[in-house]
Write a protein that binds this DNA or RNA. Structure first.
Lengths: 244, 244
DNA sequence: CGCAAATTTGAACGTAGTCAACAAGTGTGG
DNA sequence: CCACACTTGTTGACTACGTTCAAATTTGCG
């Protein structure tokens, strides 16, 4: 029951009024299952629906002309899906389920109507967008300026941190839920090289692996290797709430 | 006078009412010069002010621990600056002027107040965020999955297109206004390799260079080499306005 | 004009990619 | 319940794209 989805995410930013709470609940009242491996939305498909991810893990990616894939983002409960479809006729990216998922679909017009009626929610969505934007620029800097090993270390830390946000049981050990090819498509590497780097991280005693389970043995060193910039502890929404 | 700044950018999305127009004008009534090379906002500095870029060209970048730099974005008239500072105590990125610039500074609380009073503007800002987000993910895919030459071709096309949006005089020839080191910091390459790739593009007859001026001789081939995904022609805001 | 910054080129090096073969899982149908 | 097919993971040998280091040349500016 403590799946932290959209309302809870917004609730991190501002204290929701009962009215706002109701509006969000109505918006997200419908539910839909998406099976592992299933595509929720395909690149270039027309979109008029948005979603909130309620449970499970998804990813978004684009395909380049030569068939190679770049994974843009991993998605976790509470994330808004397909927002980037707002300004475009066609989706710029594909959304796929990495595990069985539940999503809450709603019309984009319903979304903008709720934002129009509840301006504080609109501001909160803008703030959430910015958090996501910074996550994207951190990855951009990683791809542009760090080594293969650093990118993989960063990915391990990022996934663990995001899993831990919805599942307090997760500590140093977790199930990645990604193939090495997917890790490569996220980090701009080949699966072969991902394999070598994972092995090196293991040989150096920074991680342990067992099937799909990963254990972070030395987070300090791992974070340094990843050039990991911790953003979560430097957030500040107090000034937003004070605005009420 | 036809500097297309913030109000005009929003005006692309929705027909602004006189009220909305006044609110934006009041928000951006102050002006400030930023000289070429000057830093408007430094990474880790506390921020309470946002800006609209009114004239000139700026860039945002982050520095990694080893001193290397990743340029995240080039900024043109009408762009909102320092928005990413909304959720954080400290700026996650540095803003620098590439040419002499004018910016309109305002308090972030004033910004959220205007959005609260004019919900349609808030929605428009969300839509602008998404356009920027897609631009970022396109660059992410470029860094992760394309060759050095492709990234440079993409950068040339992108800068030209953005310059052309505020300056109708710009066609195939334009002043890049970037050093080769800056091109490298934007594309994740070294300045040495940037130089070689520019030379190759020139030898292949795709571009011509003369001092800081670049001419695109074969845009078709260049766009193909860049894996360039044209987003501008596929935008669709009609449904937004219809909502009024 | 003179100096510092930016560009250009060459040679050697190294990180990551490619190709290939094999092993280990994983799921499916007979 | 096992056999077979298919996906995923692992390792080695070779290749290549982009980096590093260095030095010469050009450009721009005070």
């Amino acid at each position: 029951m403590p799946e932290r989805y959209f309302a809870e995410r917004l609730g991190d930013l501002i204290e929701l009024t009962p009215d706002e709470r109701v509006a969000i609940d109505q918006l997200t009242e419908r539910e839909r299952m998406v099976r592992r491996g299933q595509i929720l939305l395909r690149e270039h498909d027309p979109v008029t629906e948005l979603f909130v991810l309620k449970s499970g893990m998804m990813m978004s990616y684009v395909l380049l002309h030569d068939g190679s894939r770049q994974i843009l983002r991993f998605l976790f409960p509470g994330d808004l899906l397909a927002l980037s479809a707002l300004p475009y006729r066609q989706s710029p990216e594909t959304l796929t389920a990495l595990t069985d998922c539940t999503v809450c679909p709603f019309e984009r017009a319903a979304f903008t109507r709720v934002l129009g009626e509840h301006p504080r929610l609109a501001t909160a969505v803008i703030v959430l967008n910015q958090i996501e934007r910074v996550a994207l620029t951190d990855r951009l800097a990683g791809l542009g300026r760090t080594s293969a090993k650093a990118r993989i270390a960063a990915l391990l830390l990022e996934i663990r941190d995001r899993l831990a946000r919805t599942n307090r049981a997760i500590g140093k050990t977790f199930v990645l839920g990604l193939t090495q090819e997917e890790i490569g498509d996220a980090t701009g590497l080949t699966s072969v090289h991902v394999n070598r780097m994972l092995r090196e991280l293991e040989d150096e005693g920074l991680i342990a692996r067992d099937g799909g389970r990963v254990t972070l043995l030395d987070e300090r060193t791992l974070a340094r290797a990843a050039h990991y910039a911790d953003r979560t502890t430097k957030r500040d929404f107090g000034w937003l709430a004070a605005d009420t």
